[in-house]
Amino acid sequence: MGRKKTPGLVKRGDCWHIDKQVRGRRLCESTGESDLGKAEEYLARKIEEIRQASVYGVRPVRTFRMAATKFLNESTKRSLDRDADCLKQLDSFIGDMDISKVHMGTLQPYIETRKMHGIKSGTVARDLAVVRRILTLSARVWRDENNLPWIDTPPLLQLPDWEDSAEPYPLTWEEQRRFFKLMPDYLHKMALFKVNTGLREQGVCWLRWDWEVKVPALNTSIFITPGKPVAYDDGIWPGEKNKEDQIVVLNRIAQSVVDGQRGLNSRYVFPYKEKRLERMHTTAWKNAWKNASLPCNGSFNKGPHNLKHTFGRRLRAAGVSFETRKVLLHHTTGDVTTHYSSAELKELIDAVNSICDMGSGVSLTVLKRAKAG
């Protein structure tokens, strides 16, 4: 007869699993072992960890991967997909590491590797900010069965700054004409709308007809993008960055773009193949940027956010006041209301209309640093 196995071990497929009551708590997990002897050793270690924690207050070893998994499962933040991507990058460096041993020293190989691969310091800093958040939760929020925090104190993480961030590149009128001409029609319309409203990229991609609000008194319409997340049957609108509802005022050009899109789709103002475009910064955008002879050396931003900067620069050149520009650029003002009188709306509409004819009537000089190389 074969020897008896330790109680609490159950074989499922090729792997032994634990299902056992230990000091009043049920322990259910895979041992990751197909060999009974090794599975029993694993179970003995787990039982001893629980005993040490219960009797002496010794917390069990938890890996950073366990903490990262808990964070992703419990967090509801809007940028969770981005956080998951960065944690995937970090996993091969610190995934198996005891979370109490994660600090600047153990993170240094990751930082150096990313720098060697040409990753911007801003991207690495954002990755480390996610690590910092997980370590803070481990020390201040998360508790185990014995009411012990996962770690005692979160370490101080210094976010890198190699002074390598790309600068915004507001377009001149000639650059805009050259660039937009090389875009496919659907992207051209989105870009033309964005450069005339200052709406951020996801706002343009998500722009829905049920966000449109008619203003009969002024014979026009506006859009109001929800500040907080909203669930739709085809996805979750993540909300605005500052959590405030945003008013999108249309000048003559933006209004003509919107009117030209009516009837194409029942949900979205800018549909692509009957669906919502995930992002404007596509291969088509990148090819048009390159073929328009716009800077590609890494010193300048090449993405759609440049159109927001272009919009802001043109408003300033047209003499639009700072307070009005803040509203039109959707910056936090402390005034979360979207209730505007007709006179206030007319002031905003007049402001955005002031940039419609600048390309042919007013010379706008944008000072830019010379391209390197």
Rank of each mutant, 00 (worst) to 15 (best):
R45V: 10
V102D: 00
S30R: 13
C28L: 11
Y110C: 06
A39F: 02
A67C: 12
S100M: 08
C86F: 11
I111Y: 08
F71N: 02
G37P: 05
Q89V: 05
L80W: 00
R65A: 04
E33P: 05
D91I: 13
R78Y: 06
M104R: 13
P109G: 05
L36K: 04
E41W: 01
R26H: 02
E112L: 13
I50K: 07
L43G: 04
A68V: 02
M66N: 09
L36V: 14
L107H: 08
Q89P: 04
Y110F: 15
I99P: 01
E74Q: 03
A84K: 15
I99G: 01
Y110E: 12
F93W: 05
C86H: 11
T69L: 02
K46S: 09
E74T: 02
T31F: 08
T63A: 04
R45E: 14
T31Q: 06
G95R: 02
V102M: 02
D81G: 04
R82L: 01
K88A: 14
E41Q: 10
E41S: 12
V58S: 08
A44S: 08
F71G: 01
E29V: 03
I50C: 06
S30K: 08
R45M: 10
E29R: 07
M66R: 08
E40V: 08
A44R: 15
R51E: 09
G95H: 06
Y56Q: 14
I111T: 12
R51Y: 13
I50H: 07
L72V: 03
M104W: 08
G37L: 12
A53C: 13
A84M: 03
R82D: 01
A84C: 07
A53R: 14
R45A: 12
T76L: 03
T76M: 04
Q52I: 08
T106A: 10
A53Y: 09
A53I: 05
H103M: 03
T63V: 05
R62D: 04
M104K: 05
E40S: 10
N73Y: 00
T76H: 03
E48R: 14
A39W: 03
E112S: 12
T63G: 01
D91R: 06
K70D: 00
D91M: 07
Q89I: 09
N73V: 03
D96N: 12
R78N: 01
Q52H: 09
I111C: 06
A68S: 06
M97N: 00
Y56D: 13
E48S: 10
A39P: 02
Q89M: 12
E33M: 15
D96I: 07
K38L: 11
K46R: 15
R62S: 07
G32L: 13
Q108R: 15
Q108S: 11
H103E: 04
R26Q: 01
Y56W: 11
T31A: 08
T106K: 06
P109I: 14
Q108M: 11
L27T: 06
R78M: 00
